[in-house]
Design a protein around this nucleic acid. Sequence first.
DNA 1: CGGTTGTTTGAGGACGTTCAAGTACTGTGG
DNA 2: CCACAGTACTTGAACGTCCTCAAACAACCG
Lengths: 236, 236
Amino acid sequence: MHQSSVQPLLDLPLFAGLSAAAQTSLLSQSFVQTQPAEAELFEQGQMAQFLHVILQGRVALVGEAPAMEASAPAERQAIIEIFEPGEAIILAAVLLDMPYLMSARIMAPARIAFVPAPLVREFIDREAAFGKATSHMLARHWRLLSRQLKDQKLRSGGQRLAGYLLSFSKGATSGSSTFDLPIDRRSLASWLGMTAENLSRSLAQLKLHGVEISGRHAHIADLAKLRAFSAEDDLR
Amino acid sequence: MHQSSVQPLLDLPLFAGLSAAAQTSLLSQSFVQTQPAEAELFEQGQMAQFLHVILQGRVALVGEAPAMEASAPAERQAIIEIFEPGEAIILAAVLLDMPYLMSARIMAPARIAFVPAPLVREFIDREAAFGKATSHMLARHWRLLSRQLKDQKLRSGGQRLAGYLLSFSKGATSGSSTFDLPIDRRSLASWLGMTAENLSRSLAQLKLHGVEISGRHAHIADLAKLRAFSAEDDLR
DNA sequence: CGGTTGTTTGAGGACGTTCAAGTACTGTGG
DNA sequence: CCACAGTACTTGAACGTCCTCAAACAACCG
């Protein structure tokens, strides 16, 4: 039985409120896969067969631009969002039964639960609590995207980077902070909407604002100072 | 009684599935306001007091950057999304009971239904069908934003403009098309993530691709040609 | 008809990208 | 442990795109 491996699903807010019967269906019809980094969970344009729930690891949603010429010359792509354990992807495509608008790529070795899409749609018809849990997750995800879109339109690359670094020191409003970057430069650049080269330059520039980075290790000397530079509103 | 003016709410998919009791609450606690253009429905940072449902008109969600200097020198802002009749704003803030991430500005004289936020949150706890309807709307809205974010990161301003123009001729894949632009240049530019000046230049450039525009009247000579330029995937 | 607002056009500059090269890091086999 | 290859990251220079500023033009309205 693989029942035990999908058991953790019930601990997630998304499924916690399901009826006993629904929990049984969920456990018996879902399964878990361990995926290596660089694996592609699904591809832009496909119909959603499963709701993928991240149990471990990190998954990037990647938008791909149609190749300009027929010869497929290095298709341009951009990371739209990065999701971590506890999040489900992609609820929107599963609920609406429409094709994915982007692909999903594993960033770090991951354990992913596959919940059949029809089952999810059944839950939302029959399980009162599931509609609420789903709405909440979608609402959070909508806010994440809208924040990103605001950032993209209103802030410079350097400011977005500063904001990203600050996100690792959530509570603290002043003082200093030390942490490790969880993702590589190229992916980070893509997520922040700039090139890897530019990210490198932006990082160098942030030294003037009290940021020291070597490899993946980061130290912010003065959170308040960096916050001022990032020009971020404090809405979360 | 203003009951009659809120009656149309029940025709919307969002509220259609409510129980009789819930429908009664909805009608008795909601009200409708007619708002002139330029009116501000709510401001970024406020808590969501109401779910605003657009009955007529058009509403823009506007992200505002914190003023750089204390002297408030022409605060930078960008239109994140534009919603039309039938849509509710902002579900995410209402459901999560969190502050708005952006402001809402009326673009054309509008009739807006105000549904008290606590009532909405009550519905989602008690009304099974409402969770589904809410999830569906949020899912659609999430896809709209993710599409925009992809566009912002992967396509040029001119391509985004072409895509916008093409959106007025939904069904047709080839042939020509004539229509009127519903919004003014400055707003359109802000929505597309460029300046008004640049929009003007982009429009001029699109003449090479068979687009004729005078004032608000637009004519596309060759949809297929413009579609090729816009480099848009056909995912909807 | 002047005033106001919205749109277009031009010139200059800032920011970001691309291309190309150099440097640092990582892991592997000897 | 070192040499090595392969990858990731940084740096530099040239180029483009988009923005800013300024002014001309058009449209609208009293």
